[in-house]
């Protein structure tokens, strides 16, 4: 049994013609850990993540998520993961409760579960008063927190977060990470891409992608030791400046 490993890839690649967006990456993510997926723009993070979520078919290599093969059982994977994209992923013209009802519904929760989760979630975020107001009217930080809570509504084993805190102020980012910690404490594996190197410090382990390849993977402490750097910022800079391509 791969009881501890929830994501496993072996030489996973995605090529568009001659362009190798993702070039033979191999890594493992353990259950319940916060795994930071770092890289400059165009390094191939989003492509890799999309392959793991079943949005994109890999060109070659192997990958399994939550114990299921990405080629053969994408529908089994989809039931067990949550996903939050770079773009805001809730419907702004729906109220908070309507969004919860919708996402709960398409993930196959029962009405009783949806009602209960809806109450719990709004209470947790302190949004009870706003439960019936349109999501579009909320401040960005609250929207992001709400989006995360909705992404883990169906108790997924793994949640994929694609630059979830873009454009949010530091305080809200900190609060957002509290939510992430809480989810991780419940045993949810967090797979998160980010630009912010202070966020990289919050992760249990991070990997760094440069030009489609994975050039480093370890805990932030080990990486700082290895590269004799004071912060993840410096580690990242040392690695990423060798990049040949950008956007």
């Amino acid at each position: 049994m791969t009881s501890d490993i929830t994501i496993k890839t072996l030489r996973l690649s995605k090529a568009y013609g001659h362009f190798k967006a993702v070039d033979q990456i191999s890594f493992e993510v353990y259950a319940g850990e916060i795994f930071g997926f770092l890289g400059a723009n165009g390094a191939g993070k989003t492509t890799a993540m999309r392959m793991l979520c079943g949005l994109l078919e890999p060109s070659s290599g192997e990958a399994s998520v939550a114990g299921f093969d990405v080629y053969r059982r994408p529908e089994a994977i989809k039931k067990r993961i949550g996903y939050m994209s770079q773009k805001f992923s809730l419907y702004e013209d729906l109220t908070i409760l309507e969004n919860i009802r919708f996402f709960g519904g398409i993930y196959g929760l029962t009405y009783a579960q949806i009602r209960e989760k809806g109450k719990l979630l709004t209470a947790e975020l302190g949004l009870e008063a706003q439960a019936h107001s349109l999501v579009g009217s909320l401040p960005l930080g609250w929207k992001q927190k709400l989006a995360f809570s909705v992404a883990v509504l169906h108790d997924p084993k793994i949640v994929f977060l694609d630059e979830p805190t873009g454009g949010v102020d530091p305080i809200t980012r900190r609060q957002f990470w509290d939510l992430i910690y809480a989810a991780a404490a419940r045993g949810v594996t967090i797979f998160v891409t980010t630009h912010y190197m202070d966020e990289a410090e919050y992760c249990d382990r991070v990997s760094i992608m440069v030009d489609g390849r994975m050039v480093a993977m370890n805990s932030p402490e080990q990486l700082k030791l290895q590269y004799k750097a004071g912060s993840m910022e410096e580690v990242f800079y040392q690695l990423a400046r060798k990049a040949q391509r950008s956007d």
């Binding site: 079943g54 949005l55 529908e75 993961i81 773009k87 992923s89 419907y91 996402f103 398409i106």
Partner: peptide, 11 residues
């Protein structure tokens, strides 16, 4: 809006 992606990731 990007919500299509969310729908496609869902079961």
């Amino acid at each position: 809006l990007g919500t299509m992606e969310i729908l496609l990731v869902s079961p």
